[in-house]
């Protein structure tokens, strides 16, 4: 088992894709930010996809509720992904970062080595905090709630007409 894992990790580590990806993560802080944002979002998307799959396969849920619950899970998953990605990329944009760093790290002297290091660290942290804390935990519920109400209303209307 460990041998198989070892061989798979070795193959992955030496693949052209992994080598290019790792080199880019080291050399380009913006790429690293995008990668961490993508890994965070993809974990959520995968978990929501799994929920949809489990709901559809669950025989204990009545058919009329099944499609509604699955649809809601799918919509929440998509909303989570879209809101997190758009917030993250907006925060990571050069314009936003330059403006904040210029004011926040003015004491370090613009263009100095310390200023560049601080800007690099701030870019990654602020993007992840914005996307995974504020976008995911505050903006997503605010958007999901009206969508849930609308779909529930529609679902109830459909149920009444049947």
């Amino acid at each position: 088992m460990l041998k198989i894992a070892e061989q798979n990790i070795k193959n992955l580590a030496n693949s052209t894709f992994a080598k290019k990806h790792i080199t880019k993560c080291i050399e380009n802080p913006k790429f690293l930010t995008a990668t961490l944002l993508a890994t965070s979002v993809s974990k959520d998307v995968f978990a929501y996809a799994l929920r949809v799959h489990n709901t559809v396969k669950n025989k204990e849920i009545p058919e009329d509720k099944k499609s509604f619950v699955a649809k809601m899970d799918a919509i929440t998953g998509v909303t989570t992904a879209v809101v997190q990605l758009s917030t993250g990329f907006m925060l990571a944009s050069d314009k936003v970062q330059k403006n904040i760093c210029k004011h926040l790290f003015s004491e370090l002297g613009e263009g100095t080595k310390k200023f560049k290091q601080a800007s690099k660290g701030f870019s990654v942290v602020s993007t992840l905090v914005g996307a995974t804390l504020f976008a995911k935990r505050i903006i997503v519920p605010l958007i999901s709630s009206p969508i849930a109400s609308y779909l529930e209303h529609k679902h109830n209307q459909k149920g009444n007409s049947n």
Binding site: L36, S40, L108, V125
Partner: peptide, 16 residues
């Protein structure tokens, strides 16, 4: 704040 952010080195899955 500047000194603190300049010290940030390895950011990865742990932060996420």
């Amino acid at each position: 704040a500047g000194e603190g952010f300049a010290k940030i080195d390895d950011i990865g899955e742990g932060v996420n």
